[in-house]
Design a protein around this nucleic acid. Structure first.
Length: 607
RNA sequence: CGGGGUGUAGCUCAGCCUGGUAGAGCGCUACUUUCGGGAGGUAGAAGUCGGAGGUUCGAAUCCUCUCACCCCGACCA
């Protein structure tokens, strides 16, 4: 799959990252540094705090987390809460700087909102109650309630309603790069799923939906530029808008096998969507000539679809899985094919299930008259609601639980043996399903969500009464867009995508330094230190971000460190190189080092 | 929230079952020999054994409570 497919016209593919004209070039004076104050471009490791470690805590369960800890980029303070060391922060700032430059370039205006937000504001949008346990609530000394901001729709909309009075002030897009806190049920994977994290969030305000849609496309393009400049392989996909709310919504995913999200994409078109969202079409079945009577058969030990299918010697797709849930209006049985799985997000869209939970065993017994393992839609003990997936609705007949242990039923026919209340798309797509746009079939890949763009519409502006006067002098509720990027998560995602057995391999744009100059046995020959110092100074003078490893360590230790922290280019200065008039150059991904003259080294670095 | 597990030196861990003087490796400090892929030797510093209570002559070890952290689950019946 090519990244370019997900990108708007006219932008280079990710493969070209690092050669784009707007990448900060050595020697080129940046108009603005991208951060309030940049760390020094050149650095001696003897003056730096490099804190690599050989052993890692056993609980680091993902590559990026292990490598970030080993490289000494992060240290855990508490569950999902990390300190960024000087090294880690250099990388984080690189990402932040690129995000900031591209947001500025796209016309957004940076501001900074409080991380602590009053309860009252969140009550105006009902989200104090609805946001759930992720909202970290705190009290001040007067016992007034606040939350640590997990997102800033409320605050920005409050700001906008006070600041924006006229349609002439629109459209406008405000953004900030700020630490947020979401009290995750289970923080894990280091900074990839942390509770405290750095996020860029932007909010745009418009008089009409067309304008909102234009800015949405503008932000989409800005995001594509950001991830391209960062040198990441990524893909934009259609998304469910979830708790934030709103209409159109797309996510940007960094592709990595370890990603927490599954994304579905077509091999025959541009279609790509989060698995939560990807529409599942019903297959077509040949019309059967006649129907057999429903029949009960014994399944003494078979409680799963897999076991029952194996017992009958039929395909899993001929069985039906019954999932019991309890929604606002009571007990609901959800039917999906044995080879499919229920999609929670889709199920929430069914009437009466916007909030649901799995049924408890006693509830299942009460409504169906049978314990789990043998439940089904036929002859429940009490009146229940039955939701049938599209694929189940077209099955000529099915095998399902009999609501009587230990039995299942075969030749069960919808409409004859039981009645459904709803037919809906409630399953997740699987690889091989037809693409919903009718072109090609779907494949599933894994991704790490690093960006999300939404068209919010008037949801928040309405709740908070954020209006401007339009050209007719009438109050108009503004339309909003919101656009997030997980800055700290990008650092982890980049490592997931770019590493080897020796450590991290930074894309040039994210590397803490672009070049490392290493000294071998400088004590033996003063010329080594002289040559290294002069190379270091000259590279620094050219504006290259260069680090001099003058720690005086043994070569093996030094090389291992430089590789672990992922410096893209390494130049070794040694006695024997001096004698031959060369330096030893090695790109991080290269298998072998090569002996180059000083001029060749500079030209390798594009100088 | 349910289940399971772990807290012992800066880090990774052993010791706990079967109570009796606090251990190893890595890291750190000093000296020394080394010096092109995580060196060797010698000497050394370093731990309220997560916390509180209890049992006992005696508790890292047994019991109770508590805190923290981790894993699995919390749609696939």
């Amino acid at each position: 799959m090519g990244d370019a497919e997900a990108m708007p016209q006219g932008y280079p593919s990710a493969a070209a990252a690092g050669t784009l004209p707007f990448v900060g070039r050595p020697g080129g004076r940046r108009i603005h540094s991208g951060v309030l104050s940049s760390p020094p471009a050149a650095m001696r490791l003897s003056k730096f705090h490099l804190a690599t470690v050989k052993e890692v805590p056993a609980d680091a369960d993902v590559v990026s987390q292990r490598l970030m800890i080993r490289a000494g980029m992060i240290r855990k303070l508490a569950a999902g809460i990390y300190t960024w060391s000087p090294l880690g922060l250099r990388v984080l700032r690189k990402v932040e700087g690129i995000v900031r430059e591209e947001m500025d370039r796209a016309g957004a205006l940076e501001l900074s909102m409080p991380s602590i937000q009053p309860k009252e504001l969140w009550e105006e949008t009902q989200r104090w109650a609805k946001f759930g346990g992720q909202l970290l609530k705190i009290r001040d000394r007067k016992d007034a309630e606040f939350c640590y901001g997990p997102t800033h729709e409320e605050v920005i909309t409050d700001f906008a309603r006070n600041e924006l009075r006229s349609y002439k002030q629109l459209p406008i897009n405000f953004y900030q790069i700020q630490t947020k806190f979401r009290d995750e049920i289970r923080p894990r994977f280091g900074v990839m799923r942390a509770r405290e994290f750095l996020m860029k969030d932007a909010y745009s305000f418009h008089l009409d939906p067309e304008c909102m849609a234009r800015e949405y496309r503008n932000m989409y393009r800005a995001y594509a530029r950001i991830f391209t400049r960062l040198g990441l392989r990524f893909r934009a996909v259609m998304a469910d808008s979830g708790a934030i709310g709103g209409n159109a919504s797309q996510e940007f995913h960094v592709l990595a096998d370890s990603g927490e999200d599954a994304i579905a994409f077509s091999d025959g078109s541009d279609y790509a969507a989060n698995l939560e969202k990807a529409e599942a079409l019903a297959p077509e079945y040949p019309e059967p000539a006649f129907f057999d009577e429903m029949r009960k058969f014994a399944t003494p030990t078979q409680t799963t679809c897999e076991d029952v299918a194996a017992l009958k010697g039929v395909s899993l797709s001929e069985t039906v899985k019954s999932v019991a849930v309890v929604g606002e209006q009571g007990f609901v049985l959800v039917l999906v094919r044995g080879d499919h799985s229920v999609n929670e997000v889709k199920l929430q869209k069914v009437d009466g299930l916007s909030e649901f939970r799995l049924a408890r065993e006693d509830e299942i017994l009460d409504y169906l008259g049978c314990q789990p393992g043998f439940i089904g839609p036929v002859n429940p003990r009490k009146k229940i609601t039955i939701v049938v997936d599209r694929s189940v609705a077209v099955m000529p007949s099915m095998i399902c639980g009999a609501n009587e242990a230990p039995f299942h039923l075969e030749n069960v026919k919808l409409g004859r043996d039981f009645q459904q209340d709803w037919v809906a798309d409630v399953r997740s797509v699987v690889a091989g399903d037809p693409s919903p746009d009718g072109q090609g079939t779907l494949s599933i890949a894994r991704g790490i969500e690093v960006g999300h763009v939404f068209q919010l519409g008037q949801k928040y502006a309405e709740a908070l009464k954020a209006t401007v006067l339009d050209a007719n002098g009438k109050a108009a509720v503004m339309y909003m867009g919101c656009y997030g990027i997980g800055v700290s998560r990008i650092v982890a995602a980049a490592i997931e995508q770019n590493h080897d057995d020796n450590g991290i391999i930074w894309p040039d744009a994210m590397a803490p330094w672009r070049v490392a100059v290493c000294l071998i046995n400088p004590k033996n020959d003063p010329k080594v230190a002289e040559a290294a110092e002069s190379l270091y100074r000259d590279l620094a003078a050219e504006g290259v971000e260069v680090v001099l490893d003058d720690r005086g360590l043994r070569p093996g230790v030094m090389f291992a460190d430089i590789e672990l922290i992922g410096i893209p280019h390494r130049v070794v200065v040694s006695e024997r190189g001096i004698a031959a008039g060369t330096f030893e150059y090695r790109a991080r991904r290269a298998a072998e080092a090569e002996a180059l003259t000083r001029e060749q080294v500079f030209s390798r670095l594009g100088l």
